[in-house]
């Protein structure tokens, strides 16, 4: 079953999602995205995922918002008003069909919180019962993250390293703009 707290949080989340679509002020949209992350962190706490909740609050609401604001400061903070009806219509059609297919896919799923669902009977019982003795720390999420599935974390750090190298390559070398280079080579003709 689903309790009233879920409903309230979900209503807020959907309202923020729609507001982000409608708003043209990018600064407001970024702030709303931060609030979206914070509210979803609350929802994760309600769903017993406290580790996910504080990571989402720190990383999703903190660092992501910071990066977005830094980007806004060097680009523009206003979205150009577009009247591209065709793109909006295509989006609406794609979203309707994808959403319908996804909801159809949930119809034979076990209902929310069902203790008999198959997901709770494969690996989880072993982690829940044995990890406090085997690893020696009470938090089972930490045990699984750092020990049983340590390779996942290793892969994650590789992804972060790759992203960091990518960002540094994009910024470190002072690449002369292709457009400006053409202007320098052929003055007066313009680049069209």
């Amino acid at each position: 079953m689903i309790d009233i707290l879920h409903i309230i949080l979900f209503v807020f989340l959907v309202a923020i999602g729609i507001a982000i679509i409608r708003l043209r002020d990018l600064f407001a949209a970024v702030m709303l995205a931060g609030i979206f992350s914070l509210l979803s962190a609350t929802l994760f706490t309600v769903m017993d995922a406290v580790d996910v909740a504080f990571t989402e609050a720190a990383v999703g609401a903190g660092i992501s918002t910071l990066l977005m604001l830094a980007t806004l400061s060097v680009t523009s903070s206003e979205e150009k008003p577009t009247a591209n009806r065709r793109q909006a219509l295509i989006g609406l059609i794609v979203v309707t069909f994808t959403g319908a297919a996804l909801i159809y896919g949930t119809l034979d799923m076990p209902s929310y919180g069902d203790p008999d669902a198959p997901i709770h009977h494969h690996m989880a019982p072993r982690f829940i019962e044995d990890s406090p003795e085997e690893i020696g720390i009470p938090n089972q999420v930490t045990s699984v993250l750092a020990s049983y599935r340590g390779y996942d974390t290793w892969g994650e750090t590789t992804v972060i390293l790759a992203a960091a190298i990518g960002v540094m390559l994009l910024f470190a070398t002072p690449v002369v703009s292709r457009r400006r280079e053409e202007e320098l080579l052929a003055p007066g003709e313009g680049s069209g």
Binding site: D48, D152, G155, I160, G166
Partner: peptide, 23 residues
């Protein structure tokens, strides 16, 4: 207890998401 396995996988996903966001 709730199932810890999805929590672990999603912790990884959040951190990877911020790496791709930065890029």
């Amino acid at each position: 207890f709730s199932n810890p396995v999805p929590h672990v996988l999603m912790l990884t996903a959040i951190v990877v998401a911020v790496a791709t966001l930065a890029f």
